[in-house]
Design a protein around this nucleic acid. Structure first.
Lengths: 207, 207
DNA sequence: GTCTATACACCGATAGAC
DNA sequence: GTCTATCGGTGTATAGAC
């Protein structure tokens, strides 16, 4: 393992465990058992190191889920994968990392592009799945799949932060979303007559 | 305006504009045109000052919306209020403040209780509205209103962060959620026959 | 309550030997 | 590439005069 890689994974670990506060070249170098000056030799600035670490972490976890998403055949299956993903990522801390980077990115232009790229990577993967699953159902032409996928990603980030300060509340919120998802799954499975009625009502209501 | 109040609103402003990074007793005192040492005289620690500022800011903005929520009579009206709230709070920066505090709270126990309280204040207000609006509809006994309200709050936080790094994406996500909300609004307005069918399907699907 | 002054730790970043 | 040493700046927090 090269020094560069040691620094990258130490950065990711630090973000997962200690968040953005307390993140410094010194603490990361210590975590990686590496000299502090090497941070700047390899990455130039702290911000660029965090950027690189985020990219790496996101690419890896998106790739991990690509196959799982590919097997999903319905909205309820997607929901189940989402729940599994959430449980797993709580352990790995990847969502927590994303949340920290997004929060830090609000004031840091370089980080903002990294955060936007990360969200794009996740949401494109989810959009592919959503579009495939909804193809031919009543919801296909009612919903903007890209926006829907982005909303799912954003909600995950928010849920992760919420769970961090109120675990019970976070769990309740997730359960409620799951029920809501099941509801949509039923709409998705409605027959042609019912879905025509639904579409008519939706258009009448203004969208 | 007392020194204490000047410090509180300067803290809130700093969180809204510059986020958690760059937050310090010095910068806040400068913003409030107050001596730096007074931060510690009035609040003891930085963390406690941030806590107090968060409480104040949240209490004020929840109170501001209480009347609006009280007038809501349907899910689609709630959705409209939510959209208006979102647009307004983007300007005031209150949601951004919440997001920053939640991110910082992941590693700070004192801040975590403040963040949890803030979320509670918002979600209880929303829950009251949701419960009232859904009373007597098909969805009333299908959904846990408390969890639903918490999910809405969490999603708002996530959307705010997302919008900060990708404004177009954030807008698309919000639009998609609005469409989804309209869909639910229609489910809400289904006749007794259709809703009985829905309930049966939902129970069969495992919830 | 408010001020100055200051202690002490840590920060990002760089220079220069090896 | 890696190390030591260090610069200048900023952080929280406190002591003590007014």
């Amino acid at each position: 393992m090269t020094t560069r890689d040691k620094l990258l994974s130490a950065t990711a670990d630090a973000l997962r465990c200690d968040g953005f506060g307390g993140l410094s070249a010194r603490t990361i170098a210590a975590r990686a058992n590496v000299n502090q000056a090497l941070v700047f030799y390899h990455f130039g600035t702290m911000s660029e190191m965090v950027q690189a670490a985020t990219r790496k972490s996101v690419d890896e976890s998106v790739a991990y889920y690509r196959d799982r998403f590919a097997e999903v055949q319905s909205l309820s299956e997607l929901l189940a994968v989402g729940r599994g993903l959430h449980d797993r990522e709580r352990g790995t801390g990847n969502v927590a990392l994303m949340a920290q980077v997004m929060a830090g990115a609000q004031q840091d232009l370089a980080l903002a592009t990294a955060a936007a790229d990360a969200m794009k990577a996740w949401s494109e993967e989810i959009e592919r799945t959503v579009a495939r699953v909804l193809a031919g159902t009543a919801m296909a032409d009612l919903i903007d799949t890209a926006g829907f996928a982005q909303a799912i990603c954003a909600a995950f980030i928010g849920l992760e932060l919420f769970e961090g300060v109120d675990p019970a509340g976070g769990a309740a919120a997730l359960d409620a979303l799951e029920t809501l998802g099941s509801l949509l799954g039923i709409v998705e499975g409605l027959g042609p007559v019912a879905s025509r009625t639904l579409r008519a009502k939706l258009q009448r209501s203004g969208r």
